[in-house]
Computed example of a mutant assay.
Amino acid sequence: MRLKLAATAAIALTAMPMAAFADGEVNIYSYRQAYLLEPLLNAFEKETGIESNVVFAKQGLAERLDREGRNSPADVVMTVDISRIDELVERNLLQGITDNEILNKNIPENLRHPDGQWFALTTRGRLIYTSKDRVEEGAITTYEDLADSKWDNRICTRSGKHPYNIALISSMIAHHGEADTETWLAGVKDNLARKPQGGDRDQIKAIAAGVCDVAIGNSYYYGNMLQDENEREAAEAVRLVFPNADGRGTHINISSIALTKSAPNKDNAIKLMEFLSSAEAQRIYAEANAEYPANPNVKPVGMVAEWGEINPDSISLQEIADNRNAAVKLVDRVDFDGE
């Protein structure tokens, strides 16, 4: 496997052309970090003999695909959020796979595009973190509770416009409608202990430092911090809450894969997609980043299994994607990221 690591800026991506490859290869544009993909792609090459070439970037892949058009060497795109994959759909950069028995069997209907334009590979819960010292267990159990005035000046979160929070707000719109979700979001803003900032790990650190008592974050950040000797102490200061576990289920987001519209190695690309949905690959992928397998026949392992069963919200991720623009407008309307 050859990892071609691109710079994060779109202009830098333009400056790094990708060479033409032989028929025995598959070319990947990825928002997922290279170290997470390496064991998967090594296993894929061992099983099929197909080599993988990866361009990794934090942003700009949609723009690159758009620029390259039909001459793009990319066969598949791997993303880390429903918003990013939906952007590729909206820009007509993908092609659907509708009649693939393996993919349709391995990936549940709510975790794939209705026309097969993307397929989830792993899921992660958008959880609530609470202080073990200052919040009693069971004191908060739902996303709706975040707007309760009892949490005034006690909540931390990253920007409301970050894709992870946009997806959560989109799910609230799906369940409650725009008007009620706006009221809820305004209530959450009123309860913030500080202006939204940082990433999900920073919210855990803020709880440990006493800045706030409650925060919102993805499950795998907590898992990764527990494995980092420099961040373990902060992670151990919080407990995980799986919101709405006794009701509609916890909101989940996805990492996903999609076939590009150009796909010069289409057959190899589909073989890769099938492999990544298999039980073997699902175990490797989920364990590498403390995530949940998208394939329901593969159970979580290690620390993720120790957290207990997750009851995921069964709403279609495409419905959440369809509410993205409305969610962004609500964040602006309540000035969620303002002082």
Rank of each mutant, 00 (worst) to 15 (best):
281 A>S: 08
82 I>F: 02
54 V>Q: 09
92 N>M: 04
62 A>G: 11
176 H>L: 11
279 A>V: 07
45 E>W: 02
333 R>W: 07
39 P>Y: 09
89 V>N: 03
50 I>H: 02
192 L>G: 05
20 A>K: 14
334 V>F: 08
148 D>S: 12
207 I>Y: 01
145 D>L: 08
142 T>I: 11
191 N>L: 01
275 F>Y: 07
264 P>N: 09
35 Y>G: 04
335 D>P: 05
308 G>D: 08
56 F>V: 14
247 G>M: 05
106 N>R: 08
178 E>N: 13
245 A>D: 06
223 G>Y: 14
16 M>D: 08
156 C>D: 08
70 R>Y: 15
232 R>C: 02
61 L>V: 11
231 E>L: 15
43 A>F: 02
100 N>P: 08
229 E>L: 08
312 P>W: 09
248 R>I: 09
255 S>K: 02
186 A>N: 08
41 L>M: 13
21 F>H: 14
238 V>P: 06
158 R>T: 12
280 E>A: 12
168 L>C: 07
225 M>E: 04
115 D>Q: 13
300 P>A: 13
7 A>R: 14
256 S>T: 09
278 S>C: 03
46 K>P: 00
202 D>A: 15
5 L>G: 04
25 E>M: 03
281 A>F: 02
268 N>L: 11
180 D>F: 03
315 I>C: 00
320 I>F: 01
289 N>K: 14
214 V>C: 07
271 K>N: 07
226 L>A: 13
251 H>V: 15
69 G>I: 10
217 G>Y: 07
282 Q>P: 02
107 I>E: 01
